[in-house]
Each structure stands twice: as C-alpha cells, then as structure tokens.
Amino acid sequence: MPLLEVKGLSKAYVGKSALDNLSFSIEPGEVVALLGANGSGKTTTIKSICSLIECEQGDIYFNQQKIIGTTHYLQHIGAVLEGARNVHWRLTALQNAAYFSTLRGGSWKQCQSVAQRLIELLGLGPYQALEVGKMSTGNRQKVAILCSLVHQPQLLLLDEPTIGLDVDTVTQIKKFILAQAKSHDQSFLITSHDLPFIDEICERVLVLHEGKLVFDGSLDKLKKELHQYELVLDYENTLDASYIDSIKTNMSEENVRFNNNDQRFIVRFNDVNTGLRITSQIERDEIKVKDLEIKRISMEKAYLEVVKGGVNDVPVS
C-alpha cells in the first residue's frame, strides 16, 4: 500500500500552470527523486504535500487518508524546505531537536535517544554544544535534517538538501538517507539539481516539466531509454547520408540514434559493442578522424532530454 498518493493535482499562479494533473505515489521505504528545471513545479509539489500551498484541483492521500484541509498527518512528515534557514541559529543542535520534536507532536523523552543517535550518525557529535549559527554550512544543513527526522516521520521531504555542501558532507548525507530508508522504512522525496547525488541514492525518478509529469520510473529505465553511451567523432572528409545509412544497417542494436552535421558525427547507444563496431568500420573505411570521444551519458543529460523532448523523441545535439 502506498504511503503517499498524489492524484490529479493542479495549481496555477496568475493563469500560468504550476502543476498540471500531477499524479504519483510513494511506497514505504522508497527513495524517490523529483527532478525538473527551475519553475517546473518541484517545490510546489513538496509544499502541497506539506499543506503550505492550496491547489485548485486534485487530492493527496497519506496512509490512505485524504490530507487536504487537515494537519494531523503532519506528525508523520518531516521536511527540509529552506535548508539551514529551517532551524533556530541561536540554539544548539540538541535544543533545536528538542523544540522541533515537541512541535511535531513527539515526546522529547522518547525522541531524545533518537536525537543522540542521529547526531552521531550525521557526524554532529563534536559540534553539539555549538549554536547552529556558529556551525559550518554543511553542519547547519545536517541540523535541519536532524530536526526534520527526530520525531521519526514516515515520509521525509527534502528540497535541495545538498545546496552549498562539500563533497564529504554530501557523501555523509547520502549514506545517512540510504541507512534511514533501509533500517527505518522511512520514505524520502528529494528534489535536487545535484544529479550525481540523485543517481546514487534514488531508485525511482519523477521528472516534471512545466508542472507535468513526463517520466515516472526507475533510474535504470530512464537511463536505458535514453542511451547510456555517446560517441562523438570529428572528421575531415564529408560523410554523406548513404555512408551513415551503411553504418546504421551494420548495427545489431535497435535503439541507436545518429546525428551527422558540420563534420561532427554523434551516436547514442546502450551496448558498448555498438561503439566498437562503429569505430572499426570508420577505421576500415579510412575516414580521416580529427577527434574521437566515447563516454557514458551523465544523469543530467539524460534528464534534460526527457524535459526537452520526451523519451522517444530525443534529438541528438
């Protein structure tokens, strides 16, 4: 049974659609990424789940209960919405945890041991006597995460949790999220522009474009549909269409996309042997090559393709 269900959510600001019939669900223990360009509706989605925004249409269900117009479900939700600004800067990590756990309806007596465990897990132990305002940006962000988790919510909403953080802190947060999801069955919905971060922790991706859900599936599925590899070849001769056709017919893989213009030939494919086959043919036909690059397509590029044209109509650029 899904923990969270969003059904047909629509929201417009001054006539411009921010969410357009958005539907998705999240299972317990699932770590889901919500991706999209700026203004695609990610934060509006998160805030709608938190009842901070009122939508014109649609419903949200949490544990099978309709939540619109209610607040009691919020005791099972944690959120980091503005990063480190979400906590009291003049209080220590533990004082913040005490305040926010009680605010969320938890008992501090019960939450105290959870807070201590989370402080250790997040690596905040040496800094717990410091006021948050005197901590580094990364540690402030960790305190915000601590406060959102201390009452042991079932769902944690993280809006851009890695902004301004160094690599080590991002790695710690990554490990932490995965451990929480696995051992405590907590679900996470994460918006981020940090795609390598998403790549490593999310098993499922939702992609929004102008408020519409354009992709909902596993990260592997997204990558498969969008090609894993890209071959870029710069040449001196002119390659006519018939030559490109001859390469195409030589391919054993179906899902290959070609683009050839201005002495640059780009191919996207999923089977690494396809790349080898193309380079062998080019060598055999004595095409004068100026430069050649074969690389894995980054998550960022894959996601941008979905946003721009949809999975099945990706123009190679």
Binding site: L52, Y73, L74, A79, R85, W89, L103, G105
Partner: peptide
Amino acid sequence: QKGFLEQLFLCPQGYTRL
C-alpha cells in the same frame, strides 16, 4: 524573516493553535 515560518506551519495541531 528568520526562515522557519514554514516549519511552524508543519505543526500537526495547526498553526493557529501554535
């Protein structure tokens, strides 16, 4: 101004009661 008004709105008892 401090930036945590949204967090206060996440109070399960409702912001008015808070």
